[in-house]
Write a protein that binds this DNA or RNA. Structure first.
Lengths: 206, 206
DNA sequence: GCGGTTCCATACGGCGCCGTATTGACACGG
DNA sequence: CCGTGTCAATACGGCGCCGTATGGAACCGC
């Protein structure tokens, strides 16, 4: 007794493990312990399954994640929360990179683009909340977003280099990132409305 | 009259356009204007073609790229050169992300890991050349490498957000990154041998 | 108990790809 | 000429997947 949502969830698993091209009806049916006779009752074809999986993914990676992050009120805390959220689920990371590198079918790109844009806009809002102008906030957001995405890839390509969310070194590294990615002196009480360009870090002991 | 290198090059194209799973003998043969009768003279099977393509890729993305970057002597200039090199070829970017997200066959991961590690080590050396200790240099290198990889993905997922290497805005953005990613005050003549932690950017007009 | 609906199994045709076997065209040294 | 090596075309069997067609079991209201 499966629902179409069960199929969509299994399809997301398949995306994370074998990529978008690996979303095949018969293998997924085997994983679920049924035959494809079940599948073609719930869905018209393979493409409909992909759409369902993508909708599930988009809802989770925009509304749900951003809703949780919005519980933090301080812009600085929001950015830090985003870093930990992104690093929390290894499954979500794999799905993201798989979707991001997919080329076929074409509509996958639309979902990826919407999710990425909403994330980037959110980060930009965080920086705007620190008092930066739109243009400067966009630049900082692009760099911070790059670090997010790059971290996903490093955890994939160089396991062990990037600390996992449950390791003690993770906290240290987040602190390191925060100091660099969030320009101080913009906490809202001073320099609240001026644009700011990065001036780098002063050399001192670590 | 094809050589096995022609096939490996076409396989790399296929990886960039259709992913690792898209490296199929017969379609590539059609692209090259021959039949697979030619292919199975040059290679034992599909896997051998993948290995040849990966060897070609590894040579280009480590020895060749790093050799060009090493022409710069100043560590700061090297990092900046790396940014522009990474953003130079859209084809190389697509190949990299495709390989990075590949799961099957397993040996692909070995190539990706070696290439990533050599790049990361190179960046770490650059920071060490600025006078940072090994541990701190590693942290900076991880962040800078993340920005590299994230930039590739942003250019894919959000076309238009990240300026291309031939646009005028590209230079501005590189400067912005350099100021943030390379802590000043470590140019070699002062504070040359002390570890440094990031202290962020001071607020000033952009 | 009977028709209808829900959910799944089975069987089938078709397609794209892999890998092998066989043959053919062409160059070259003897 | 002839043999040999090089490179490619053709033909074939097999496999995994898609999508359809059909059947069947369980459950429902009546």
């Amino acid at each position: 007794m499966l629902t179409s949502r069960d199929w969509a969830e299994a399809a997301l698993d398949a995306i994370g493990q074998r990529g978008v091209e690996g979303v095949a009806v018969e293998p997924i049916a085997r994983d679920l312990g049924v035959t494809k006779g079940s599948f073609y009752w719930h869905f018209a074809n393979r493409e409909a399954l992909l759409v369902a999986a993508l909708q599930l993914w988009e809802a989770r990676e925009t509304d749900d994640v951003l809703e949780r992050v919005r519980q933090e009120t301080d812009p600085r805390a929001r950015i830090q929360r985003l870093i930990t959220e992104v690093n929390a689920s290894r499954r979500a990371s794999r799905i993201h990179t798989a979707l991001s590198s997919a080329t076929k079918p074409g509509f996958v790109r639309d979902y990826v683009e919407r999710v990425s844009k909403r994330r980037l806009d959110f980060i930009q809002d965080c920086y705007a909340g620190l008092g930066l102008g739109a243009e400067t906030a966009r630049r900082w957001a692009l760099m911070t977003f790059s670090v997010f995405l790059g971290a996903l890839q490093i955890r994939r390509d160089l396991p062990g280099e990037w600390p996992a969310a449950d390791e003690p070194a993770f906290g240290d590294y987040v602190k390191f990132l925060m100091v660099t990615l969030v320009p101080p002196g913009l906490d809202g009480d001073d320099a609240a409305t001026t644009d700011a360009a990065p001036a780098g870090a002063a050399a001192r002991d670590g």
